[in-house]
Design a protein around this nucleic acid. Structure first.
Length: 288
DNA sequence: CTCCAGGTAC
DNA sequence: GTACCGGGAG
């Protein structure tokens, strides 16, 4: 196994982007909120929303004291609005179970709503300085190329955590940097479509490069089309509720001009099932 | 068309 | 293991 940690650390020192959540003292709550927003959403779209969110709710207790509707409304057009609901639930759980302090223990973090393997370890590592493997889509791609010699990673699995652990230095501070540097490399250099291998600190050690950049196939899931999808319909319903909030909307007026009435009804029902909307007396509103 | 600091529930 | 969940930018 080649040493990837040393070149990653050296590269990160000079190439890391200056992102808000990387500033010392940003705080565990700030890190947690940023990680929720960064789930499937690019950095540049997150930053303004993150700052507005933390200005309004500087602590888990502040968010927990407001209605879920406020969280869904503040989430605006970030996408995957269940994350807003989950973040609110997590804040309530943090107040109930941890006296309002974001827990540092991975298992305690995993027990919070909306937090899985990635987010739990990201908070434990980046907010609390612990040594754990932090594995996101960028990390999986870097490891697939540098170690396995494959163009694209397999679908996420527990093996990813083992693979990442294998390249982490024993020393805690260095392991934190390697976690961040691997994600950063995947986000800015070892990208999915047009990697800049001439600028890569791992070029000398990369198995994919050594093999001549073979096209090893692509086992990733294909994303469903968005145009005309149920997701688009849900987004339209929720946007209407946000724009009207706090005023509820008569059910008969909810995206009344949507071309597919069946799909519109399905969208409303699924939003209610997710807890993102509530219906009563013929009116639809954000969750109270 | 593709991609994106994932997680949940079945 | 698979399906589902937004929206914007390239």
């Amino acid at each position: 196994m080649p040493d990837l940690a040393t070149p990653l650390i050296a590269w990160y020192r000079t190439h890391a982007r200056d992102l808000p959540w990387r500033h010392p003292g940003f705080g565990a709550w700030g890190v947690l909120v940023s990680e929720f927003m960064l789930q499937q959403t690019p950095v540049n779209r997150v930053i303004p929303h993150l700052q507005a969110w933390l200005a309004r709710w500087p602590t888990p207790a502040a968010l927990a004291a407001d209605a879920p509707a406020e969280a869904v409304h503040q989430w605006a057009n970030l996408g995957y609005p269940r994350r807003a609901l989950w973040l609110h639930r997590a804040a309530v759980e943090i107040v109930a179970r941890h006296d309002g302090d974001v827990p540092a223990d991975v298992d305690a973090l995993l027990a919070l709503t909306g937090i899985g393997d990635y987010t739990a370890r990201a908070v434990a590592v980046f907010a609390y300085g612990q040594r754990h493997p932090v594995v996101d889509t960028n990390t999986r791609r870097v490891l697939a190329r540098a170690i396995d010699g494959r163009a694209q990673p397999d679908p996420p699995s527990r093996r990813d955590l083992i693979a990442m652990t294998a390249i982490l230095p024993d020393e805690v501070t260095a392991s934190t940097i390697v976690n961040a540097a691997t994600m950063e490399l995947g986000a800015t250099v070892c990208t999915a479509r047009a990697p800049r291998c001439d600028a890569c600190p791992l070029a000398a050690a990369c198995a994919w490069r050594a093999a001549g950049y073979p096209d090893t196939g692509d086992n990733r899931r294909r994303q469903a089309r968005y145009e005309g999808s149920d997701r688009q319909a849900r987004g339209a319903v929720l946007r209407m509720l946000r724009d009207a909030a706090p005023t509820p909307i008569p059910l008969a007026e909810v995206i009344a001009d949507w071309p597919d009435a069946r799909q519109r009804d399905r969208a409303v029902d699924s939003l209610i099932a997710d807890g993102l909307a509530e219906a009563s007396e013929g009116l639809l509103r954000l969750p109270t």
